[in-house]
Every structure is written in C-alpha cells, then in structure tokens.
Amino acid sequence: MSDRRRINGPVGATIPPASEDGASREVAGSRGGRSRPPNAIRKMYLKTGVTPSASGSAYLEIETSGRSGVSGLKLSCTVHGPRSLPRSSPFSPHIILSTHVKYAPFATRQRRGYLRDPSERDLGTHLEAALRGAIIADRWPKSGVDIIVSIIEGDQDRETSKTQGDESWDLMNALSGCITVASAALADAGIDCIDTVAGGVAALVSDKGDGNPSIVIDPIPSEHDRILAACCIAYLPTRDEVTNLWFKGDLPASDAELYTKLVEKGIQASAKANRVLVECLGETVG
C-alpha cells in the first residue's frame, strides 16, 4: 500500500533497533512505582492561541513523570469555524461537529503512519461525544466546526515492553487530554458552550506487594504492575453531567460498588483538570 502522494522510503521493511535482551532488563529497572498520591493528577501546562491562523487553538502538555524515558503528553488542538457547511451537505438547524485525532509519526515508540488508524478514529468519536454535550449547538444554524487534535507526543513509556498491552491504557490518557485541550480551543474560538469540559482518568490497579487492587487517578501504565480496569470521563462541573464515559477492563459484576467508585474517581480527576482549564482561560483574558 504505497502512497504515491508521500515519500515512502525504501521498499524493504525497516525495523526499529531492538533492545538488548527483550523485556528482561526493563522490568528490573523501570518499575519505579507511583510517585504521586493516588488522588493527584500530574501537572498540566495549558495555553490557548498557539495557532493564530485558526479560529481557536490550544496546546496542552502534561508533565513527564519524574522517571527518565517517560514522555508526557503533548497535544495541539485547532478549531476551525463556525464556518459554512460544504455545499453538498443538507440543511442543519444546529452546528455540525467534526473531530479528528491524529498521532504525529514521531509521537509514539513505534513510528506512526500518516493514515488514520482505527484507534485514532475511536478517539475522534469519543471526543466528539464529549464535546457535543457541552456545545450549545443551535446558536449556530447551518454551520460546521472542525476540531483537530494532533498528538505531538504520546503519553508513553519509551522503554516498557509492548507485551504488557498498555497501549490501550495509553489511549485513555490521550483521550482525556484531547477533551481538555479541545475544550480550551473551543472557548478560544468563541463557540457557545454550556460549560467547560475536561477529561479525567481513573484506574483500578494492582501493585506488587499488596494484594488488594486500589483506585488511582491519572495513571501512568508503567508505574503500576497491572491495570485491571480504567475509565475516562468527560464531565461538566457546573451541570454535574457526564458527557462521555469510556470504560475498559475487567471488573467482577458482583461488586457494583467498585464500578461506581471508579467512575466517581474519574469525575474527581476531571474536576481537577477542569480547575486548571478554567484558570488558564481566565489568565488569557486578564
């Protein structure tokens, strides 16, 4: 599937250099354990107006954890619109949202291609659901808005082996960042919203040593031995509404309490991110 519109490089397959002895080395070195309290989120840096040519834009950077080799999330979001819909589209009494999430080729350990893969489409769909609940759509009849999030750097441990399957947990953190940064960009673009919406992640983790799984917010997969379940919440604090809930993992059905707790913690994480978001928006105006 060579794409003639891009420079594809050599015909033969290229492989990233392998690490010394597979995964064995890292387990010894990198299992540092969580460096924050279980209910603390990492520091965020948020800035609006990074793309002056767009109607609205924002940049979000989440602090790297203290340990080396772990990159923090770096996201850039642009909002274009409200603008007229393409001529072919039918009349719409409200604004039509379209969201795109794309990893940069250099965002993750494995080089990403330029075509959107299913996980990126998935992120886009979740992001749309999270934002649609926040936008006052009928303020803008027959118009559309494009929200594009570029993941410049994924929230990923460079050294952790892939075998652990933590890629899917990384998606949760990425989504929560996407929601927060898109909300800031929407506010920057001046699109009417009922509230600011931020993303938050809570996870049920089990660490070596103590047998009881515990719930933490804003988890970094490499800091925990095993993640049993995680959920990403998009939450409107003033309305006390959840606009999007994404749950993945394995929970015993008998313990409904556990699920509720997990969601509550996710809301907590989202509310914390929201405070940073509101603070940042206030600063840009002042």
């Binding site: 006052i136 920057d188 001046g190 009922i194 840009t284 105006v285």
Partner: peptide
C-alpha cells in the same frame, strides 16, 4: 449574547468580558 439560562440561573456560554 454569550449567555444562557439553566435552572433559572444565568450562565456564561463564552470566554469573554
């Protein structure tokens, strides 16, 4: 402009003055 009503309260719907 730039506001909305919810539960008989007035809320802002924009970032602005």
């Amino acid at each position: 402009p730039g506001t909305h009503i919810h539960n008989s309260n007035l809320y802002s719907s924009l970032l602005g003055v």
